[in-house]
Every structure is written in C-alpha cells, then in structure tokens.
Design a protein around this nucleic acid. Structure first.
Length: 502
DNA sequence: GGTGCCGGGCA
DNA sequence: TGCCCGGCACC
C-alpha cells in the first residue's frame, strides 16, 4: 500500500518516462525516472519518418515518445497482415516493407488505401490480435492517456502551469530535473501537435492496463485526463481561464463549504495542498478540498471502480508556507511572470514525502498553541520606573509578554520560579517577599515530570487543563470591583492574575 | 453566589 | 495584540 502510494503520489509518477514496455510489465509500478530524460533519450518526436509524405499524415494520436531501446521486435514480412494504430483506432493493413535499421514498418492500410510508415512496436500481427500474450507492445491508449480536447490557448496555460508545478517540485529532494525540463516538454508537445489534445477520445477499451491512469510502458506516461463528465465549471476553471487558473483557490470553493476552516489565529505556517495534475497546480487549503478537486476534475466523479478509489491521494502534494506567503499565493501572479510563482517558504514536499508526512496539518501546531508562559522566549529586558512598582509592572508584563526565569522582585532580589509553596502571609506588595510562581516553567517536561522535583509543591488541581485557584488574594479582592482600574491587566481581562501569583 | 481564569471572539 | 466576555470549576 505504501509503496503503491509512494509511487503514485510521486509527481514523477505523474509524468515520468519509464522503460519501455518490454522492460516493465504492464501494471508494474513505474520507476522513478526524471522527466528530463524526455528530450534526451527516446526522442519524443514523431515516430514516423518524414520522407514519406503519407507518414506526415500519421495520426497525432500515436504516441510519439516510444522508447527505442532495442527490445525484441517482430520481423514483419511484406504482405503480412498486421494491425496498426491509425486515426484513433486499429486499422488493418499489409506490410509493405520492414526496415530493420530504422525499426520502421511501412504498412498499407486496407480500408483507407493509405500507406503509412510507423514503428515496429506500433504494428502487430493481425492474426495475433486478441491473444493476451501477443498484445502489441505499443498500445497507444495505455500510454497516451485521454485528455479532453483543449482550446488552443490552453497550451500557454499548460506551460505556465507546468512551470508552476515544476518550480514547486524543484525543491523536492526526489525530483532533480532542471526547471527547464518541463517547458521543453511542453513546447515539444505543442510543437508536435499536442497529442494530448487530439487523443482525448481515444477509447481505452482495448487496453489492459491496471488502472487506466498509469501505463507500464514507455513514453510520456501521464495520469488520466480530466474526466469528460467533470462539471463544466471545473473544466472551465481549470482549462479555460488563465486568469483564474493559477491554482489558487480560497475557501470559497463550494467543495470546502462544509468543512471547518482551520483556525488561523496563531498558526503562522499554513499548510496548503497543491494539485499535481499536469497543467493544473491548483492550490487548496484543505486535504479534502484537494482530494475533491482531483477526484472531480481529474479523475472523474463518476468513476466508481475500486481501482480509482483514493486515487486522488496521489495527485496532490502538501506545501507549508508562511501565512503571508499563503496570502500572496491567494493573489494570483500576473500572467506571464514566472516569478509570480508562489514560493513556499518552508518546504515543498514531494509527493512521496507528502505521503509519508500525512496527515500534515498538525506538524507545527505545537508551538503557537502553547501558552505564552511555556514559550522559551528570552528574558524581557525591563526598564521600569520605581522599584516599588517594579513587581507590579513585572507581573503585568508577565501576562502580556513573558516572564523570565528569574523575576526581579526588587532591584536586588530575584525570585526564582519554583514550585515551592509561597507564603501567603506576607504583604502582597512587599518587595522582599519570596514568591513562587505556579505557572508552568518553560522548557520543562510535562508537570508529571516536574512534580517529583519539587516535593513541597502544593497540591495541583487534578485537572491539568484548569489551574487551581490560588490562595493569594487577587486584584479583585484587594482593590475591589470599584477600583477595577487598579487591577492588573490579567485580572481586568479575567485572566490569571499576574500580580498576586500563587 | 462569588471568584478565578480558560478559551475564544472581536477590532 | 489588546481587550473583552462567556462559561466553567472551585470555594
């Protein structure tokens, strides 16, 4: 499960070049190979020769990124009946010529009176069709995943969004492909006619791949395209409007209306989730939202097969960004300015890492949620006025800011924080009294550990959540309600009195 | 019921 | 962050 999750969650898995079909059986997990190899190795260029004008009419549906690493091929004989993928469907034809050095087969289509030139792996014997053992190594459907037809301007958005995704992923320790890889890919894809664009309606009926989303064969393996039944709103949102498709979405997302917005009172680090779907990059604030986004927009809502369940888990990544960065993200960068790319300040987990780090939102919540008294802040330098009021000021400051370990009771006497019982018989404002502070010490283990350190600690409240009522008089009692203005700030705010600490 | 104060809302 | 208050537990 985990391995599967890791593999799926990996963005590399979203768009990687795996070995050819002969090297990896169908259904096997894809190896993590940087996508940057696309332009280098098996050239993702048309697999057909350009010498034959007919070849230039080769259907663009045919995936053009087949690996050429020499896997065994069938030797086609002239006149042999074969099947070839053409025009989005299988066509029967006769082998005209099989050029071994080029691994090309010239096939004359029977029904279209055409002669096409294609790779060996794109051709399979007609008489073997239907037998599983001889399923041709090239099945376009399994490698060229359906993508809905796009408008022409979608190409620009593709590049932009791809750059966004890649930029964010460039921080990943797993992905090390240079940032230029993705644009190269996009450009080449666009240059070669954008096979995504025209292959949207290719049926997957003949494919026996495991999930339909992932191909075990070579070539540009991409996840399944947006489901054609996805709501038009989201289709338009994701593909139609570059202005709004920077992947940033606030809680106005109707999908998120039913989930509580995370408290942003104290958390400075915000966890956001970014869709890793190619050319999407949508960023949502909640895991549920991103899952729904992936599911609804990319995987398709109506898919009910088990193989698609929780598939959306693998198409988003977790980002932790500072609050201001998150706000900056909320404002879409100007189109065409790559520097407007949201820069997660903390980290961007690769999909695989994100899988390990889930559930993420609690990661760094401990610090801000702690009360100020438990925060290991440095001593607050105080330059207060009269020594007589020093304690008062210090006490009040202790609530508003943070007390140091040694609280100056007077200019010469410091009271160390301890759990020792305080003498309540002394005058509350005596500058020489010994005082103990009952609030928790910073940088200390939980009270269970502390309790054995101080034998004389007063009985604490059994409830750890609520502080025991102190024995000392509080401002309310000392000054009375009529002199509320003389109370310490904490008392005025109905907080734990910081002037008459227990 | 009075009091202390935690938790949370609001500006 | 400062200020305020509801509500709860303790006395």
């Amino acid at each position: 499960m985990l391995s599967r999750r890791l593999g799926k969650r990996s963005l590399l898995g979203a768009r990687v070049l795996g070995p050819s079909a002969s090297e990896v059986p169908l259904g096997a997990s894809l190896p993590l190979e940087p996508q940057v190899e696309v332009p280098e190795g098996a050239a993702p260029q048309p697999s057909l020769t350009s010498k034959d004008p007919v070849c230039q009419e080769q259907p663009k549906e045919v995936l053009k990124t087949l690996g050429t690493s020499g896997h065994p091929q069938v030797a086609f004989q002239p006149g042999q009946k074969v099947c070839v993928w053409y025009g989005g469907r299988e066509c029967k034809g006769l082998v005209e010529q099989h050029s071994w050095p080029e691994d090309k087969v010239t096939v004359r289509l029977l029904d279209q009176k055409l002669q096409i030139c294609c790779r060996v792996e794109e051709v399979w014997l007609a008489e073997l069709q239907g037998t599983t053992s001889q399923v041709p190594t090239y099945r376009p459907v399994s490698r060229n995943i359906d993508v809905p037809k796009r408008k022409s301007d979608a190409v620009e958005m593709d590049e932009m969004m791809a750059a966004m995704v890649l930029t964010s992923l460039s921080c990943s320790p797993v992905v090390q492909s240079p940032p230029g890889a993705e644009p190269i890919f996009s450009v080449s894809r666009a240059a070669c006619g954008d096979p995504w664009k025209e292959s949207g309606d290719v049926s997957d009926s003949g494919s026996s791949t495991t999930s339909g989303h992932w191909s075990g064969s070579s070539g540009i393996s991409t996840p399944s395209p947006p489901h054609p039944q996805a709501s038009p709103k989201y289709l338009g949102d994701a593909f139609g409007s570059p202005q709004t498709d920077h992947g940033f979405e606030t809680d106005s997302d109707p999908f998120l209306l039913d989930e509580p917005a995370p408290r942003k009172r104290k958390n400075s680090v915000k966890v956001m989730y970014k869709c890793l779907w190619p050319s999407c990059g949508k960023v949502l604030r909640s895991i549920v939202g991103i899952k729904r986004h992936v599911k609804a927009l990319h995987l398709g809502d109506t898919v009910d097969s088990d193989q698609f369940k929780r598939e959306e888990d693998f198409y988003y990544t977790e980002m932790q960004m500072k609050e201001e960065s998150a706000l900056a993200v909320a404002a879409p960068p100007a189109p065409g300015t790559p520097n407007g790319e949201p820069a997660p300040t903390s980290r961007v987990t690769s999909p695989s890492l994100a899988a390990l780090s889930l559930p993420p939102p609690k990661v760094q919540s401990s610090g801000p949620e702690h009360s100020g008294l438990e925060s290991p802040l440095p001593s607050v330098a105080l330059s207060k006025s009269a020594p007589g009021s020093f304690w008062h000021i210090q006490a009040d400051h202790a609530y508003q800011a943070l007390p140091s370990f040694q609280i100056p009771v007077s200019p010469h006497i410091y009271t160390s924080i301890s759990w020792a019982a305080a003498s309540t018989t002394t005058s509350p404002l005596s500058p020489v009294r010994s005082r103990s502070l009952s609030f928790s010490e910073p940088q200390q283990p939980p009270p269970t550990v502390k309790s054995h350190l101080i034998v004389t600690s007063p009985p604490r409240a059994q409830s750890s959540s609520r502080k025991a009522r102190g024995e000392a008089k509080k401002c309310r009692k000392v000054y009375g309600i009529e002199h509320r203005d003389q109370w310490c700030t904490a008392c005025r705010w109905k907080k734990a009195c910081q002037r008459f600490l227990d």
